[in-house]
């Protein structure tokens, strides 16, 4: 790979040619704000928050789409750049609901973060605000298009990663919105509820229903784990507060690049189903009766020992589980084999 020499905020830097200014900046720890950039998606250059000043350029180019060239001199936080960013924030606020106090996204909202960073407290522009009804009819997430800043990440994620292509831009000018074909509710579209749009929405336009009002983003513990459904092995973070799961966020650094499907993203609430078994049960006269672990274990041990003594070890058989952990499968076969039988299998065949 050939390298080019550039100057970033006065600092001489060598960068691989072909990298964008944004990537070059990130590599040396310079944070350039952006709403619409996602390393996995095609480059949109839409939000213009990441504009920078390049010596000799007429306009302020977007750093996310501008490749570095030899000798390029870049300022990422010049007055001109900051003014442009402030202007974008003010313009964004002009059409945006001012309800951060109750917005679910507070604390993990990029509009908030950047407004704080650039000291923008709302908008000087009076005028029309959006009044699009909330779409809350699907079971998994809210779509509040009044909060949408049209960064288009959800559209690209839906088309480029999922392939469902359920949403796209519609209408023009101030009336532009991201919606489904014929502007129907999301469940009438080709959406398969993978939730990846929700996970990359930088503002409160797409928010999960699960965990609503159950804590701010920073209040939850995030536990990295592996999905219990199919064999793809997606990993994600369970958000836990007060011993309850309040949400899931993808592991963008993991092997699946943060991709999820509806089951992993939204289908974890079985964990606290009222149907959960919470105590051992022993069947007596055809009815299950609650028992202690000690009672249950004694009974099982004596029965297995009895069968083995009377009919031999191969009269015992066990089905292990493709849903439990390696450690548990290991112990299961160890137990059966230790009792003297190889009658152990699981449902790999089903």
């Amino acid at each position: 790979m050939t390298k080019v020499n550039i100057t970033l905020n006065g600092q001489a830097v060598q960068v691989e040619s072909g990298k964008t200014v944004l990537e070059a900046a990130q590599a040396v720890g310079i944070d350039i704000p952006t709403f619409c950039h996602d390393p996995e998606l095609s480059k949109a250059g839409a939000c213009r928050m990441c504009v920078v000043e390049v010596a000799g350029a007429r306009n302020l180019p977007a750093s996310c789409t501008t490749p570095v060239t030899e000798g390029m001199v870049i300022e990422t936080e010049s007055d001109r750049v900051i003014n442009a960013r402030k202007s974008i924030l003010k313009l964004t606020w002009a059409g945006h609901p001012q309800d951060c106090l109750t917005c679910e996204k507070t604390g993990s909202c990029k509009l908030q973060d950047y407004s704080y960073r650039y000291d923008v407290d709302g908008s000087p522009y009076k005028g029309e605000v959006k009044e699009i009804p909330l779409d809350d009819t699907n079971p998994f997430f809210f779509r509040d298009l009044n909060k949408c800043i049209l960064c288009g990440k959800c559209v690209r994620k839906c088309h480029e990663v999922n392939g469902a292509g359920a949403i796209d831009f519609m209408y023009r000018g101030f009336g532009t919105k991201v919606t489904t074909a014929f502007d129907d509710a999301i469940e009438e579209s080709s959406c398969v509820f993978c939730g990846m749009c929700v996970d990359i929405c930088p503002v409160g336009a797409l928010t999960p229903k699960q965990g609503l009002n159950q804590g701010r983003a920073w209040e939850a513990d995030k536990v990295l784990t592996t999905c219990p459904y199919c064999g793809s092995g997606c990993t994600f973070y369970l958000h836990v507060r007060d011993d309850k799961i309040v949400g899931v966020t993808p592991n963008f650094e993991g092997p699946m690049d943060g991709h999820l499907c509806v089951k992993g993203r939204f289908g974890w609430d079985f964990v606290d189903s009222p149907d959960r078994l919470k105590t051992p049960l022993i069947k007596k006269d055809g009815e299950f009766v609650e028992a202690t672990w000690e009672e249950a274990m004694d009974l099982i041990a004596s029965k297995f020992e009895g069968v083995r003594a009377q009919f031999g070890a191969d009269a015992i058989a066990g089905l292990s589980s493709a849903r439990t952990t390696n450690e548990e499968n290991y112990l299961f076969q160890k137990l059966l084999r230790s009792m003297g039988t190889n009658n152990v299998d699981h449902c790999a065949r089903l």
Partner: peptide
């Protein structure tokens, strides 16, 4: 006899995914 087992979110261990990748399961609850 029915024995109550915990869900995956309540225990530690490892799963192996379809591409032979060994990954952690961590207790959250």
């Amino acid at each position: 006899v029915v024995l109550p087992a915990v869900s995956w979110a309540e225990k530690e261990g490892t799963f192996v995914n379809t591409e032979r990748r060994v990954q952690k399961v961590n207790p959250a609850l």
